[in-house]
Amino acid sequence: MTTNYWLFDLDNTLHQADAGIFSIINQHMTAYLATNLHINSAAASQLRQQYWQDYGATLAGLRLHHPKINLHDFLLACHPLAQILPLLQPMPQLQYTLAHLPGHKIVFSNGPSHYVQALISAMQIQPHFHALLGTDNLELYHKPHPQAYHNLCRQLHIQPQQCIMVDDNLANLKTAHTLGMRTVWYGKHSHLTPEINATAPDMSSLLHIASDLL
C-alpha cells in the first residue's frame, strides 16, 4: 500500500499568523532592508512587498537582486522568536485533527527552520510530524518555486503522487497540482478551482474530506 504524506503549510494553516505574527516579521524585514540596502523605511517596505508579489517571498527577491545579502542572517533577524511566540494562536481543533488524520505529516514552510521548529514545539504538535522543513532546509528555495517541492521529495525519498498539500495560498497549490500532488485549499476564503481537489475552511473539516483524498 502506498504511504500518503500530508504537506502542511505553517503560517495561516496550522496557526493564525495574521493575528500579529506576520506584522512582527514584516516590520523586521522592512528594518533589515532599510539598514542593509541603505534606503528609507518607506522604500524598504515597498521593496519587501514588491518582492513578495513578484516572487512569492521577499527572500527570493534578495537572492536574485542583492547577492551580497547574507540570506541566513536575514531569516534569523526577521523571525525574532521572543516577540513572535507570545502571539502564537494555533488553529482550533489542531491537535485532534493531526492525531486522527491518517498518513505521515510534514511541515512545508517558507519560514526558516528555527522558526518552524519553535512554533511547532510551542504548539506541542511535534509528535504528529514526520519532518519539519523550512526554506533553509530546501537550499533556500521557497513555495511556489517548483525546486522547493523537488528538494522536499528528494530529501524524504517520496514521489509527488504520494503527497497531499494543505495550504492557504493558491499559488503554492497550483505548483503542487502541476507536479502531480493532490491539493487542499485551506481557509474560509477557499473554493474549488481546476487545480484544487478539495477545500477545508477549518481544521476539523480536513477529517471529513480525508477519505476522498487517500
Score class of each variant (00 low, 15 high):
1 M>S: 14
1 M>L: 11
3 T>D: 08
4 N>H: 15
4 N>T: 14
8 F>W: 09
9 D>E: 06
10 L>K: 03
12 N>T: 01
13 T>L: 09
13 T>P: 08
14 L>S: 04
14 L>K: 01
14 L>Y: 03
17 A>W: 06
18 D>K: 00
21 I>T: 00
22 F>R: 00
23 S>H: 13
23 S>Q: 15
25 I>W: 00
26 N>Q: 01
28 H>R: 02
30 T>G: 02
30 T>Y: 02
33 L>H: 00
33 L>M: 01
35 T>P: 05
37 L>V: 11
40 N>W: 06
40 N>F: 04
43 A>N: 09
46 Q>L: 11
46 Q>I: 05
47 L>N: 01
48 R>G: 02
49 Q>T: 06
50 Q>T: 15
51 Y>D: 05
52 W>F: 12
52 W>A: 07
52 W>C: 01
53 Q>M: 11
53 Q>V: 10
54 D>F: 14
55 Y>C: 00
55 Y>E: 03
58 T>P: 02
61 G>W: 01
61 G>A: 02
63 R>K: 13
65 H>L: 14
66 H>Y: 14
67 P>Q: 13
67 P>L: 07
72 H>E: 12
73 D>M: 13
73 D>L: 10
74 F>G: 00
74 F>P: 00
74 F>H: 01
77 A>N: 07
78 C>K: 02
81 L>A: 00
84 I>T: 05
85 L>P: 11
90 P>E: 07
91 M>Y: 04
91 M>V: 12
91 M>A: 13
91 M>I: 11
91 M>Q: 15
92 P>H: 07
94 L>S: 05
95 Q>F: 04
95 Q>L: 03
95 Q>N: 02
99 A>S: 14
100 H>A: 10
102 P>N: 13
104 H>R: 15
104 H>F: 13
104 H>E: 14
105 K>N: 04
106 I>C: 14
106 I>Y: 09
109 S>D: 08
111 G>Y: 00
112 P>V: 06
114 H>K: 03
115 Y>M: 03
119 L>T: 12
120 I>G: 04
121 S>N: 11
121 S>V: 11
122 A>F: 10
123 M>F: 09
125 I>A: 07
125 I>R: 04
126 Q>F: 07
127 P>M: 11
128 H>K: 09
128 H>L: 11
129 F>P: 09
132 L>Y: 08
134 G>W: 02
138 L>S: 10
139 E>Q: 14
140 L>W: 04
140 L>Y: 10
141 Y>K: 12
142 H>K: 07
146 P>H: 10
156 L>C: 10
160 P>N: 08
162 Q>K: 13
162 Q>T: 07
167 D>F: 13
167 D>Y: 08
169 N>W: 01
182 R>G: 08
183 T>N: 09
185 W>E: 02
186 Y>M: 08
186 Y>D: 00
186 Y>S: 03
187 G>I: 02
188 K>D: 13
196 I>A: 11
197 N>E: 13
197 N>P: 04
198 A>W: 06
198 A>L: 14
200 A>P: 01
202 D>Q: 15
203 M>G: 05
204 S>P: 02
204 S>D: 07
205 S>L: 11
206 L>D: 12
210 A>N: 12
213 L>G: 08
214 L>G: 07
